[in-house]
Every structure is written in structure tokens, then in C-alpha cells.
Design a protein around this nucleic acid. Structure first.
Length: 694
RNA sequence: GGGCUCUUAGCUCAGUUGGUAGAGCGCUUCGUUUACACCGAAGAUGUCAGAGGUUCGAGUCCUCUAGGGCCCACCA
């Protein structure tokens, strides 16, 4: 072996990474090994509609660190990768693509659209799976699943049937959040709120004036509601009289009383629009009043609006207000009124509350069960503050709308083809309804023995933004289906930001691609940059300097190994004496190694990844390279470092490689393979080595 | 309206159970000794936002103030 050719001065990641990954994958080491305790992690299924982004890269890194650590510790480690068809999200991505091509889904049949979207999704799935491999992710690819795999879909349908038969799923006709732009209903969680300033119009209905921000919805109103205790209006309750409305028509209005009215708001009186407001809807239900639609699913006013019919609701508002003004029906306008407006999370356009039938999950029993489990400590949260956030959310949770008026996803109708109520429904499941069952579905797909051994999984690692949409729902569904929590620990990571700590976004042009950075600096460098100096659930800025630091660290390790190899002078490790602490130097480095082993393990057991990595770096660079190794040079007699020192160098090097491996798997494995020339009896792979335990 | 969180070296941020402040990058000076210039040596830089409290001892716990950020919320 020649140093210059076989052990070049610089570590060039691109020359090693894909080869090493193939070596690992084909060796079968990603599968559960040995007789140790089971340790399992189900990765968040990646949306198969684009490229790997930094959030994904962080997921791969954090989760792979855990998996590699536990594998080396001797646990029966299982890391499960998966991809998500991501219903609505993918539909939007694909529709944008269609628009760019000058096409539209409305020129296609649903079947055509699904076929093309499937092809698009499968291509992206393959793409992203390659990028997950690029990240060094040591997932067992035999367990890799897609949310549209027949076994997964069948699980979703079985769950639906079970819940339907037990009364936990029902079809309800009530007010839902509706996106006019995307023509679909949402669950509560897909809605954002923003404070906006809109005029509050005080409109005269005969003797009673009401306040509203939405005069455009008032065409069907037949009822004025006041609080039963309100002295101002007591004489009117139960009576009716004719008033003029915006169309110029005379309409009969009835006055009723209901507790839902707050006397201190506006004039203490309002008219109700049951088909377009949740509170009004409830009042109408209580009093058995008609519910007349005023706005169509296209967001335009219906014929009931007379001359305003066909206008978009928002455009109509000003025109209608002007007409009311002309007719002398406006008492005053409060221009400074600020209220919270519900917005579509995707388009940021106002939500239009609509009365329409949807499928709901009756969440109370499921949520109560989840609350019980959390309070009993069956799930441990990192950071722990998220436990309460989750509990609070569960306590206030309302029934979950799981149907979407979209084209891409799992069709509801096939869940119960024999049941007309289900079989005639054209809707698609909310993606989260299937991903909520993911841990059960993926383990079950491998067979009952996987569920037995690996459910509950050890840890769920995901972004803190998914706490409600995914984590809580998995908890509820896992408990429902298996009577056991789906994971024993939850670790939340934060959002990856740019070097200034700003959120990455396409419009700001500050998005950095993990694929490009990996190609430029190596995956280890990227992994290092993502982990160093970060904390659980904390947002993490990712300046390129951090990644450069990672590359430099990889190179440092490489050169430490190069130096140690040179000291061997062609001998085998076997020829060296067992390392003994002779000098103070020896004693110090061996003690430092031992304490680093303990601390890195302790940090990793407690999900303190950044601190663990900092320990490794400090040991390797400062204690080992700068101090011990430099000392060893000075101690040289002639050309030769004494054998005991070489033995210590070798021991510390190999132990350091083990400690560093979970974080920067490629360079450590590459070095290990180089070293194996000197350790004839250890021809194996570092990934399969035993973790050094102090 | 409710809740959470942050304010630590020039910059971006760590700091597990309270025990005389840390990393990376940057900066100053020096060094091309055959592991590494993707390097080494030496060095400078912080009343840990402000005020008060608990404690033998607080960046770390409590209260308040100021200024950021985030999440939740069916106030017509």
C-alpha cells in the first residue's frame, strides 16, 4: 500500500459515499440484527411530489444518528422509510405543472388526472428515495412503504369500516371551512387566522339595527336574533315585520332570542346566515330555521342576490354597501373594526364557510384516550413543553372532517362498496387520515410478528409543525387500533432557516438544496452542519460555514488516520503491544476517551444531538489531534514513535471513529475500510461494530 | 383573547439535574516541522436584555419591565 495513492492527503467525499452506501445496503446490515432489545423508528413519510429539502435532510440526519447509535449498541434496530401520496398537496403541485404546460385538470377526466398524477408521484418517489440514500439513511428498504400501497390502503379502509360500524365515523351536514380557490372543504387545522381591518356596517332592519362585516351574505336572512335578557329588544321578540333589503325588496323578518348573542357587541342584534356561518348555523338548528345558501361553491352570489348574483362575494360587498347607503339603510359604518379572518393555509385567501355534507371522525372518545395515555406518561416529549401543547389541543378538539373534494388520494367510496351512503360519495380521504395510521400500517404490512416486536415504536422524530396534524392523530389512531401508543418518545425538531436565521422561501430566493450542498461538501459535512449548535424544536440557521466546518472535521479525522497509519510503518495492529498508560499524556488521553464515551452515550440517550457531536469533535480535534498526537510527534526517537504510543494512537482512533460514526457515517466508514488493511482479524464494517461503552 | 418561547463573544447559536462562561465562523500576531493550509501555535473579545427575589452559590429557579419570535382561537 502506498500512502500517496491509497491514502491521499484530502478526503474527497464524492469518491466514497455512494460506494459505501451500496456496501451497507447490500450487506443487509440495515435489517434488525442479533438478539438485542428492539429499537424502532418510523420515518415521517416524505411527500412524493418534489425534491428533498433541508427539513427532510434534517429528518434523515437526526433519525439516522439514532438508528446507527442503537444498532452499534446491539439493539435490534429497525428504521422504516416511507413516502406519502400527499393528496391535496400533490394535487396542487401537479396542477401548477399542468398550468405551466398550458393545460388544466378541468380539461381532463378524473381518471386521466389520477393516472398522470400517479406517474408524477411515482417518479418523485423514486427520486426522493435516491436522495434519502444520499443522506446516508440506514433504513431497512425492505420495509419501505408508500401510502398508496394496496396493504396500506386496505388498512385505511378496514379502519374506516371499523369506525363507521362503531359510530366513530359519520356523515354530517354542517358548516365547514371551504376554500373557494381549491373547491374543497378542510378540517379546522388547515385554516389560518389573520387580524384584518374591515368596515363594520350598521344596517337598519326596520326598528332594529344590526352590525355585520358581511352585508353580501344577508340576502336570505329572515331572522333577527337578540339576547333573551336584552331589555332593549324584549318587546320585539316573537314578532315579525316587513323591511327593505339591498335588492329593494320588502322581506318579512322574525325576531327571536338566543343565548349565543352577546348584547355588548354592535347593537346587540344580528341577522343570521345559517348556510355561511357556524354560529348562525347552530342558532338555526336550535330554532329549526331554514338554511338558505347565498354563495355557491364557486364563491359567487346565487340568484337570491338579485342583480348582484354572479359576483364574487368579496367584490359584491362594496357594491352592496353602496346600494344600502343609497336606500338609506345604513346607520353608520365603523371603519376601524378589526377582526380575525379565517384563511386557506395554501392560498391565503379567505375561507368561505359553507353548509355541505362531509365525513367526520367523532374525536372525543379517541382524544380522551390519548389524553389519558399522555398523562400517564406513556409518551415522553422532547422538549417536554410540547406535552402540554398537545394536551391542550386534545382537550379542545372538535370532530375531524376527513373528506376532501379533490381528485388525488384514497377514494372514500371503495371503503364500503356495499353501503350506498359510502359508495356514492365522490370524495377523497384527507391525507392525514391515512398517515395517522402510518406506524400501524407499515409494521402490519411486514406481518404480525413486526407489530408484535416493534409496536410501539421507540421514538417518533418529526418537525414541531406536525404536532397536531400528524403526531396527535397518530396517537389517537394508534391507541384506537392497537390499544397501545404508537411511539414511546416524541422528539420535535425545529425549522431549518438560512444563514441569517430567516425562513427559507422560494420568493426570498434563500432556499438551499441539500442535494447541492451534499455534492459540494459531502453528506457528512451537511449532516454535521445540520446538527452542530442546534437544540430540540429550536429553529436552526444553516450558514454554509457550518457545513464547511463539517467538511474540515471529516478531513481532520481522515488525516489523523493517515498519521496513525504512517506510524504503523507497514506493521499490523496485531504486532503492537496492548496499549498501556505509561506517561501522563497517555493517561490523560485514555481518561478523556473514556469520559467522552460516557458523555456522548448519555447525550444520545437523552436526544441531545448537538452536545453529543460537540463532545466527539472536542475529543478528536482538541484532545486527540492537537494535544496527544502532537505530543507523540515530539516524543519520536529518530523516525519512530514507540510501540506503546502507536498502540494508544490506534486505540483512540478506532474508538473515536465509532463515536463519530452515527453523525458522519461515510468518512468514518471510509477510514475504517482503509484501516482494515492493518487489522486482518477485523475485516468488517464500522456500521456493524460495537459501540464503545465506558 | 389564551398559551409558549427567546434576548449569552463582532456574526449565527449551544449550555442535561443551579457550582467561578462555550462552539463554529470572524479578528490579531506568528508558523510552509513529511497527518491535515479543509492546518498548527499564541492571543483579544461577554456587568449571560434590565430590575428585584430565593440560595452558601443563578445564564440556569421565581416575580416584574422592555423588546423580538412562534402557536392556538367559530369576537356577528
Amino acid at each position: 500500500m502506498s500512502l500517496e495513492t491509497d491514502f491521499p492527503k484530502a478526503y474527497v467525499a464524492s469518491e466514497h459515499e455512494s460506494r459505501l452506501y451500496e456496501m451497507w445496503e447490500s450487506s443487509g446490515v440495515f435489517k434488525p440484527q442479533g438478539e438485542g432489545a428492539p429499537w424502532s423508528l418510523v420515518m415521517p413519510p416524505f411527500n412524493a411530489n418534489g425534491n428533498l429539502h433541508m427539513g427532510h435532510a434534517l429528518v434523515c440526519t437526526l433519525e439516522d444518528i439514532m438508528a446507527r447509535y442503537h444498532r452499534m449498541k446491539g439493539d435490534r434496530t429497525l428504521m422504516i422509510m416511507g413516502t406519502d401520496h400527499a393528496g391535496f398537496e400533490t394535487q396542487i403541485v401537479f396542477e401548477k405543472k399542468l398550468v405551466k404546460e398550458g393545460r388544466s385538470r378541468f380539461q381532463m377526466t378524473q381518471e386521466q388526472f389520477r393516472e398522470e398524477t400517479l406517474a408524477f408521484t411515482m417518479a418523485n418517489k423514486q427520486n426522493i428515495e435516491g436522495q434519502v440514500r444520499m443522506m446516508g439513511t440506514s433504513a431497512d428498504w425492505d420495509t419501505n412503504r408508500f401510502t398508496l400501497d394496496p396493504k396500506v390502503v386496505e388498512r385505511v379502509y378496514r379502519t374506516f369500516r371499523k369506525m363507521y360500524n362503531e359510530g366513530l365515523i359519520y356523515r354530517g351536514n354542517r358548516i365547514v371551512h371551504y376554500s373557494v380557490k381549491y373547491r374543497t372543504a378542510y378540517s379546522d387545522i388547515e385554516v389560518l387566522h389573520e387580524d384584518r381591518n374591515d368596515p363594520l356596517y350598521y344596517i337598519k332592519y326596520g326598528p332594529i339595527t344590526i352590525a355585520t362585516v358581511r352585508p353580501e351574505t344577508k340576502f336570505g336572512d329572515k331572522t333577527i336574533v337578540v339576547h333573551p335578557e336584552d331589555e332593549r329588544y324584549k318587546e320585539f321578540v316573537g314578532k315579525s315585520y316587513k323591511v327593505m333589503i339591498a335588492t329593494g325588496e320588502e322581506v318579512e323578518m322574525n325576531v327571536i332570542a338566543d343565548e349565543a348573542i352577546k348584547p355588548e357587541f354592535g347593537t346587540g342584534a344580528m341577522t343570521i346566515t345559517p348556510a355561511h356561518d357556524p354560529i348562525d348555523f347552530e342558532i338555526a338548528e336550535r330554532h329549526n330555521l331554514p338554511m338558505t345558501p347565498v354563495i355557491g361553491l364557486d364563491g359567487k352570489l346565487l340568484p337570491i342576490a338579485g342583480e348582484f348574483a354572479g359576483l364574487k362575494a368579496a367584490e359584491a360587498r362594496k357594491l352592496i354597501a353602496a346600494r344600502l347607503q343609497e336606500l338609506g339603510l345604513i346607520e353608520k359604518v365603523d371603519e376601524s373594526y378589526i377582526h380575525s379572518v379565517a384563511l386557506c393555509y395554501k392560498s391565503l385567501q379567505p375561507i368561505e364557510p359553507m353548509l355541505m355534507p362531509q365525513w367526520y371522525v367523532k374525536v372525543r372518545p379517541l382524544a380522551d384516550r390519548a389524553i389519558e395515555s399522555i398523562e400517564k406518561g406513556e409518551v415522553v416529549y422532547y422538549p417536554e413543553g410540547y406535552k402540554r401543547i398537545q394536551l391542550d389541543w386534545l382537550k379542545g378538539l372538535r370532530d375531524w372532517n376527513i373528506s376532501r373534494q379533490i381528485w388525488w388520494g384514497i377514494p372514500i367510496k371503495d371503503a364500503m362498496p356495499e353501503n350506498p351512503e359510502v359508495a356514492n360519495d365522490p370524495d377523497i380521504f384527507d391525507t392525514w387520515f391515512s398517515s395517522a395510521q402510518w406506524p400501524v400500517a407499515v409494521l402490519e404490512a411486514m406481518g404480525e410478528q413486526y407489530l408484535q416486536e416493534f409496536y410501539p415504536t421507540t421514538v417518533m422524530e418529526t418537525g414541531r409543525d406536525l404536532i397536531f396534524s400528524w403526531v396527535t392523530r397518530m396517537l389517537m389512531m394508534g391507541l384506537y387500533l392497537r390499544d397501545e401508543v404508537p411511539f414511546k418518545n416524541v422528539y420535535f425538531h425545529g425549522m431549518v432557516n438560512d444563514s441569517q436565521g430567516k425562513k427559507m422561501s422560494k420568493s426570498k430566493g434563500n432556499v438551499v438544496s441539500p442535494v447541492e450542498l451534499s455534492a459540494k461538501y459531502g453528506t457528512d459535512a451537511l449532516r454535521f452542519g445540520l446538527i452542530i449548535g442546534s437544540a430540540a424544536a429550536g429553529d436552526l440557521p444553516l450558514p454554509e460555514e457550518k457545513i464547511v466546518g463539517g467538511r474540515n472535521f471529516a478531513n481532520k479525522l481522515w488525516n489523523i488516520a493517515r498519521f496513525v497509519t504512517m506510524q504503523l510503518n507497514g506493521r499490523n495492529f496485531h504486532d503492537l503491544p496492548s496499549p498501556v498508560a505509561v506517561t501522563d499524556f497517555d493517561e490523560t488521553i485514555l481518561a478523556q476517551l473514556e469520559s467522552a464515551e460516557a458523555e456522548v452515550s448519555n447525550h444520545l440517550e437523552n436526544y441531545r444531538f448537538a452536545q453529543a457531536l460537540q463532545q466527539v469533535q472536542g475529543l478528536a480535534w482538541q484532545y486527540f489531534a492537537d494535544i496527544y498526537l502532537e505530543g507523540a510527534k515530539n516524543q519520536k526517537e529518530g523516525d519512530q514513535v514507540d510501540d506503546n504510543t502507536v498502540a494508544i494512537l490506534f486505540k483512540v482512533l478506532t474508538s473515536t471513529l465509532k463515536l463519530a460514526h452515527p453523525f458522519i457515517p461515510f468518512v468514518t466508514e471510509a477510514i475504517w475500510q482503509q484501516l482494515s488493511d492493518y487489522i486482518p482479524e477485523q475485516k468488517g464494517m464500522l456500521i456493524a461494530e460495537r459501540w464503545p461503552s465506558a
